[in-house]
């Protein structure tokens, strides 16, 4: 299963992958903030384009991200369809006025506002997906830990992040071994043959040895850490820390620009928006 994770445990060699951990984190956070707060395609389209560039720059293997991309595209197209079925005039209520182009049946009318709104929603989700993808492909657990620490997160929390991610390959190997040994005793996990509830019960059966054998090791790990002085001081240094370079300065500039746009949007659109006006920017 180690190979099936998208997150990498080895530092990569491309520009974004070589950045300092804090820079990557800030770049993600500023991108996500913009994507989440904004319903304005004048902001969303450039942000989307920027994140696409980031993603292409880490040269992902299509084979590695193919499955998840299809899944996201399919799920969200389905979600959009569902949204339309539940409220066919969602765009109208968000934007405030309506031009009915034509009617399909009953209350299902097609309005440009709804089409526009649903496209904005898709754009937001895909932007977020792209942003998360380049981030996951370019950060290692240690960089994430030290990146958080440099943002003044208490180091015990940083340890939770880096140690937790570090132990995931071990845990998933244990899970597989336990599952296999139970299958050899006769446990059927084949989806076609077994009902949802029975599968839940079986998952619980596997979980008990997994829980106990995993938590059994907590004491040893904690002792090994204490014996090497974990927790002795208020501050801690990190072996995997990378000094920011000129490239980092460039990307931090992008971060600052994104944060300024975020702040302006927050003040102008979110707080100062006149009552009754929609949060979606609509060109027509």
């Amino acid at each position: 299963m180690e190979n099936s994770f998208v997150i990498s445990y080895l530092p990569g060699q491309h520009l974004i992958q070589k950045l300092n951990g804090t820079t990557k984190l800030l770049l993600l956070v500023s991108s996500l903030s913009l994507i989440m707060i904004s319903f304005d395609i004048r902001i969303l389209i450039p942000t989307f384009a920027l994140n696409i560039i980031f993603l292409i720059s880490v040269k992902p293997k299509w084979r590695q991200i193919r499955g998840i991309t299809y899944f996201i595209v399919f799920m969200n197209l389905f979600n959009i369809l569902l949204m339309y079925l539940v409220s066919p005039t969602i765009g109208v209520s968000e934007i405030g006025h309506s031009d009915v182009w034509f009617s399909i049946i009953g209350r299902y009318v097609v309005t440009p506002e709804t089409l526009f709104y649903l496209s904005v929603r898709l754009l937001k989700i895909f932007s977020m997906f792209i942003a998360s993808l380049w981030f996951v492909l370019s950060i290692t657990p240690s960089e994430l830990g030290v990146g958080l620490y440099r943002l003044h997160v208490p180091y015990k929390i940083c340890t939770v992040v880096s140690l937790g991610l570090r132990s995931i390959p071990d845990i998933s190997r244990n899970y597989r071994e336990i599952k296999n040994s139970l299958q050899m005793r006769g446990l059927e996990l084949d989806k076609k043959r077994v009902s949802v509830f029975k599968r839940l019960k079986q998952s619980v059966t596997i979980l008990i040895p997994l829980l106990l054998s995993t938590f059994e090791r907590v004491d040893v790990i904690a002792s090994a850490m204490d014996l090497r002085l974990y927790g002795i001081g208020k501050k801690r240094s990190y072996y995997s820390y990378k000094k920011p370079t000129r490239n980092d300065q460039f990307f931090r500039l992008i971060v600052i620009i994104q944060l300024i746009v975020f702040a302006i949007y927050l003040v102008v659109v979110v707080f100062l928006r006149p009552a009754g006006a929609g949060r979606v920017w609509y060109p027509w």
Binding site: L82, L163, G164, I168, R199, L207, R217, G231
Partner: peptide, 27 residues
């Protein structure tokens, strides 16, 4: 330290189970 390790390992278990040991019901 024990709490830190337990939370880290618990979170790792939570993540693995959420991703790989679940039965989809809805989006």
């Amino acid at each position: 330290t024990k709490t830190v390790v337990s939370v880290a390992i618990g979170a790792a278990l939570f993540g693995v189970l959420l991703d790989f040991v679940s039965i989809p019901v809805f989006t």
